[in-house]
Design a protein around this nucleic acid. Structure first.
Lengths: 219, 219
DNA sequence: AGCCGCTATATTGTCGACAATCAACAAAAA
DNA sequence: TTTTTGTTGATTGTCGACAATATAGCGGCT
């Protein structure tokens, strides 16, 4: 497990990473059927490996399987997005609360440093750093919570689905400066070891971006 | 997916269910190594099926795997229990909030009826119904939230690990009457469609039982 | 014409054998 | 004695073939 950080060691790992990438980035279109034999020729591995990869992808909620029928890439719907953000709000909120309790002083300092770097980049108009910066910010807090289940669910499980929505529905958008301020307040709460506040701020932060995305979907 | 409700259709399903049962109930001791060949002879299926089952068990956090080394049943530790309940607090809290919004009036009525039945059983001194009753109570709220990710994570993922701790560390205990009152208040909040309150009460409810278990672990 | 059941085909599920990798032990050098 | 290195044995990873199952198309019946 911990698919995200560790390197692919086995062939199934590599195929899983490749497949996940291709799905998230839309190279394999959402909602399409995934034939095992087809994939095995395409990626030059045996069907057993493809099956292993499909299994893992299912637990990332990136594909759905049905016995004796096959696998499909998950469909991107507004309801699905809503449900996804509801879970994020809950889990990342708790992650922020725990991070306030469990992050080392050094980790908090690093987080502060990261935030300032983003601020400097923004003033130079390099707002395209925001996407990676946002990801990095959330990632550090998740890791900082020191809860295996939480990190596994968020990083191995939900994170890539979030990215899939972002990439394929094009959520680069504005909300850059406001999100930055929200990040700042969250870090401050964590630095003050105020878990309750950190959780509340993180939940509101995710709620806001949910609203932002929902507004875009209406267009 | 949705391992819990659907019936086992394939041989891998059956083996997975059997293995999960044997692990949760301690028939296979916690922390022990799981040899694929050994299991394949024990359960009279091919190694491929065992591997499939082990894959699923890994995503339930019931076993841990390492490439080229093998799988082990998870060890039951007090830290693990704490982390588990932290996630439960977060996810079931959100489930209660969403259930207050999304449950049908009929589902709420059923929940009320269930609760009254438990109360009647308790007055007759049949407190041993509490275990199943508690499970049932939480289960209905989880299903009532109508969020696929949430239900999948809780029911397919965490639920069985919770049960493993309960069974093997013997958490039958008291806390029956107080838990009943807490259940009552939660249902009331849901009936009033007060999601915020329902979430708060559910989180406190789970926090309390966490404390109760932690106290038992100290003895 | 519309519906039902059957066959044919393609896809998934399962298996046993082979290849790759690791852990343990033994042997040799420092 | 301690550390390092090579070998051995066992376990996991990978593969191709076979069996079981579902979908699609066709033909017959009402």
């Amino acid at each position: 497990m911990t698919f995200f950080v560790e390197k692919p060691v086995t062939a199934a790992d590599k195929t899983f990473f490749q497949l996940r990438k291709d799905i998230v980035e839309g190279d394999i279109v959402a909602g399409s059927k995934l034939s095992e034999t087809e994939l095995s020729t395409k990626y030059s591995v045996s069907r057993a490996i493809i099956r292993e990869a499909l299994n893992r992808l299912e637990f990332c909620h990136l594909v759905e399987r049905k016995a004796n029928v096959g696998a499909r890439v998950v469909a991107l719907t507004s309801e699905g997005l809503l449900e996804l953000y509801q879970v994020r709000e809950s889990l990342e909120g708790m992650a922020a609360r725990l991070a306030a309790k469990n992050m080392s002083d050094e980790e908090v300092n690093d987080l502060n440093y990261l935030l300032n770097a983003h601020g400097a980049n923004m003033e130079n108009g390099q707002s395209y750093y925001q996407e990676a910066g946002d990801v990095d910010f959330h990632y550090r807090i998740i890791v900082g919570c020191k809860n295996k289940h939480l990190t596994s669910m968020l990083i191995d499980g939900l994170y890539h689905l979030v990215r899939m929505y972002r990439v394929q529905l094009g959520m680069a958008g504005p909300r850059v400066t406001t999100a930055f301020d929200e990040h700042k307040h969250i870090v401050q709460a964590i630095a003050n070891r105020d878990g309750e506040l950190a959780e509340m701020l993180m939940r509101r932060h995710i709620m806001y971006s949910k609203h932002s995305i929902q507004n875009k979907l209406k267009n």
